[in-house]
Design a protein around this nucleic acid. Structure first.
Lengths: 216, 216
DNA sequence: CGCGTGATTGACCTTGCTCAAAACGAGTGG
DNA sequence: CCACTCGTTTTGAGCAAGGTCAATCACGCG
């Protein structure tokens, strides 16, 4: 597999591209977004180790959004032809990959619910709950802490909030001793409290083995 | 295939269900939504004839949202076992179905962009552009008119707006002679004008044969 | 030490929300 | 045909969450 080292904010695939391969996140974070014509942009996913953010390009030839590195990252590229062959030789693979794209969609739905209906603090808290569980699922969480090299502007673009309002809402969460965010790290100081203000139910992540300790 | 006649707002599948079959819309409209704990709900899709709104349940065993009839409708049910068998016997079918679920995701992304970043009038106009094209694609549009039995409350739930604001924004579109909405019908009075305020680019629908007359 | 990016804060403003009342219209029973 | 009802649309008035603009602060880095 062809590897590539990426700088922060470096593009991986762009809207209108017709890629012949998909990208596997090996280290760091990737994110996807789309810009409206007035320049505002919406980020609709953050992708972590082991995910294939543009797997959909296997069946949708033209990209309808951008994919880029959130932080310095390493990604691998897998040719669509190889993926298709894998699917033919091992029928289970097709189902598994399909499932991954369906979970992607499920997360979109949850984000839509958040952006459309929830208040600022709740949205932020919800995102943190989600990212924590997803990172934990691939072994990237220790001591309630995960690496999260994200700016408040990017948070705003993902949540449909202005940078200023993200900042103020974050301070609200800090004041309630729910999280510590800074220096590229997120620490959950009070999971139950955070889950509570987040209105968080992890079912939509379709994790195979929910951690009983977390999902009580 | 087992058919079923549905009343307006009748549930087809519910969150937490574990269906063993998926639903094909044969006549009328279906819609999907999820409610937050404070009772507000987000609608994230309207499904038209020929679509399989809960196809994802083929690989995600537990529903993470509700599916219901928007208007009186007829749906058919297809057992997952039959679908899986079809996929094995005709490999092309799997790809086609997978593709449908990917387009579903693409539409979610566009909606997210709208809800997160666009103004009320733009959102509404965008939705109308999308629905018109999708209905036209299955032959349900004539004379710039489509059947659209939707309330302003449902529009609001889909767009992240209050009913009152939907009403006022609709009046804005009417005042600009862009649309006529009422009596369960939507007529596009000025496609180019509507497309313009909608910031609409149909690429995300991944239609196979975009109509040159419309997409100029 | 000087720079540059990102975080933070203050002041003010706008979009869209809430509450509440009124108008409308299709369907029902008299 | 009319009165009544229920759901939906429309309108008014006041409010608030969140946006905008702009200045300041903090900190890692060369």
């Amino acid at each position: 597999m062809k590897l590539r080292q990426l700088q922060r904010d470096e593009a991986i695939v762009r809207e209108h591209d017709q890629p012949s391969r998909s990208c596997l996140v090996i280290e760091g974070f990737a994110y996807r977004f789309k810009a409206a014509s007035d320049g505002k942009r919406q980020i609709f996913s953050f992708q972590v180790r082991g995910e294939i953010p543009d797997l959909h390009s296997l069946h949708l030839k033209t990209m309808d959004h951008d994919l880029a590195a959130l932080s310095p990252a390493i990604v691998g590229f897998i040719a669509h032809s190889d993926l298709l062959e894998l699917c033919v030789q091992f029928p289970g693979v097709a189902g598994t990959l399909w499932r991954e794209t369906l979970i992607d969609g499920s997360i979109f739905r949850e984000w839509m619910l958040g952006i459309g209906q929830r208040q600022a603090q709740t949205r932020i808290a919800h995102l943190f709950c989600e990212l924590y569980l997803r990172l934990d699922a691939v072994g990237l969480a220790q001591d309630w802490t995960v690496s999260l090299p994200i700016t408040q502007e990017q948070l705003g673009d993902a949540l449909g909030l202005s940078t200023v309002h993200v900042n103020r809402s974050l301070n609200g969460l800090r004041a309630d001793s729910l999280i510590t965010l800074g220096a590229g790290k997120l620490r959950i100081d009070d999971w139950d409290g955070l889950k509570d203000v987040a209105d968080f139910d992890p079912a939509y992540l379709h994790l195979r083995q929910p951690k009983p300790s977390l999902h009580a």
